[in-house]
Computed example of a mutant assay.
Amino acid sequence: MEKLQNLIVVIGRFFLSAIFITSGFDKIAAYSGTQGYMESMGVPGMLLPLVITFEIFGGLAILLGFKVRLFALLMVGFNLLSAIIFHADFSNQIQMIMFMKNVSIAGGFLMLVAYGAGTYSIDAWLNKKLS
């Protein structure tokens, strides 16, 4: 059962990270449109490079299991802030669904904050090496 649980943690990290890695690259491909959308929501467009960097590298850190508790905690904040800024129009059903998606993803990241990256991760490898 332990091996299955270790594999499930890796799969969970993959699922949580995939949306951010792909989203980061999508923002590069549609840079001006994304920048315009951010600005229309009151967020300075000059923050877009930071958002892209955070999504790609934060997503990769979660995927690989590197400093997972830290990056997961940052992802919790990122998701909640994004939900509030971009999806808080509860009169629009799609925006309500997007809001709840972000909150749900934040919940998944909170599980990583609580339990860590698992056995199959850079964090576990580094801890074993340092012991």
Rank of each mutant, 00 (worst) to 15 (best):
A117V: 08
M75G: 07
K27Q: 13
L74H: 09
G24V: 07
K101H: 06
V9H: 01
D89N: 15
I105P: 01
S40R: 08
A106T: 04
F14G: 10
L70T: 14
L16Q: 09
M1W: 05
T22H: 03
A83Q: 06
Q5P: 00
T119D: 04
Y120F: 15
K101E: 12
L7P: 00
A72R: 03
F25D: 09
N127E: 14
K129D: 03
A117T: 10
W125Y: 14
R13G: 07
G107Y: 10
L64V: 11
M41W: 00
K128L: 08
E55I: 06
L48K: 03
Q35E: 15
L112W: 04
M100T: 11
L74G: 13
E55P: 04
A72H: 05
Y37C: 01
Q35F: 03
G45Y: 06
A61G: 11
T53Y: 08
L7Q: 08
V103P: 01
I8A: 15
G45W: 06
V76E: 05
V10L: 15
S104M: 04
N102F: 03
L47S: 13
F99Y: 09
F14K: 04
F86C: 02
F66E: 03
L7K: 06
A61T: 06
T53K: 00
D26Q: 15
I8W: 08
G42I: 11
A88M: 11
W125N: 05
A18N: 07
L112Y: 07
N6Y: 11
V68T: 15
V43N: 04
A18K: 04
F20T: 10
K27N: 08
L80V: 15
F25A: 07
G42L: 10
L50V: 13
L47C: 02
M111F: 10
S23A: 15
I28P: 02
I19G: 10
S104A: 14
V51G: 09
M38F: 15
Y115E: 09
I122K: 05
L64R: 00
T53D: 01
L130W: 04
I8Y: 09
F14P: 03
I84A: 13
N6W: 05
F66L: 15
F57K: 03
F86M: 14
G24N: 08
M41T: 00
D26G: 15
G107K: 11
S82W: 04
N79Q: 12
H87Y: 02
I56M: 07
R13Y: 08
L63P: 03
N102R: 02
Q95L: 09
G59F: 01
F99R: 01
R13H: 11
S104L: 07
I85F: 03
S131N: 14
Q5S: 14
F14S: 12
K101S: 02
G33T: 11
Y115I: 06
Q93V: 13
G36C: 03
Q93F: 11
A30T: 13
K128Q: 14
A30M: 08
G108K: 09
L47H: 01
S32D: 15
N92E: 12
L50D: 00
T34Q: 14
L126F: 12
M111N: 11
Y115T: 13
L73R: 02
V76Y: 05
V9D: 11
I52E: 01
N79A: 09
L7R: 08
N79V: 00
I21M: 11
L130S: 12
I11E: 00
N102W: 03
E39Y: 06
A30P: 00
F20C: 05
